[in-house]
């Protein structure tokens, strides 16, 4: 019997744009790399994302966004995670995010911001690196 389980990552799209080819590409790549990927689909609210992430006890959330509302939506997700006492969930972001906004997003607790053109291998190794030291979620509760 397995003593460990694959890491779980929730991938969701916030914002109003209805295009999720990029998110689905990442979902597929993460699955092939051995992650359990919970995909929530497009046009999700920060509330929906955080509720799902907590209930699914994921190790990380990857948010994708193309519509430019990152300065409202990303802080909200970080804030809700704090309210849920779930800051141990690692945050990643991806999408068309101007370089000048990246420091602010990182200051909210997002570990990495992946902009278009970052090679897949780099994304995967960054995620692996960030999640490597984490113990399995359930152990701490008993």
């Amino acid at each position: 019997m397995d003593t460990s389980r694959p890491k779980r990552i929730l991938i969701g799209k916030v914002g109003l744009d209805g295009h999720d080819r990029g998110a689905k590409f990442i979902v597929q790549a993460l699955r092939n790399a051995g992650y359990e990927v919970i995909y929530t689909g497009i046009r999700r609210t920060p509330e929906q994302i955080v509720r799902a992430a907590v209930d699914e006890d994921v190790d990380a959330i990857g948010l994708s966004l193309l519509s430019g509302a990152h300065n409202e939506l990303f802080p909200r997700v970080a804030e809700l995670l704090q309210e849920e006492d779930a800051e141990n969930i690692v945050l990643f972001a991806g999408g068309t995010i101007p370089d000048k906004d990246i420091p602010h997003i990182e200051s909210l607790g997002f570990r990495k911001v992946f902009t278009p053109g970052v090679p897949l291998a780099e994304i995967l190794s960054a995620i692996e690196g960030e999640l490597a030291g984490r113990s399995d979620g359930g152990g701490a509760i008993v």
Partner: peptide, 10 residues
Amino acid sequence: ARAMSLVDQS
């Protein structure tokens, strides 16, 4: 939620 992760292991 965390108990569900726990029972997914041995």
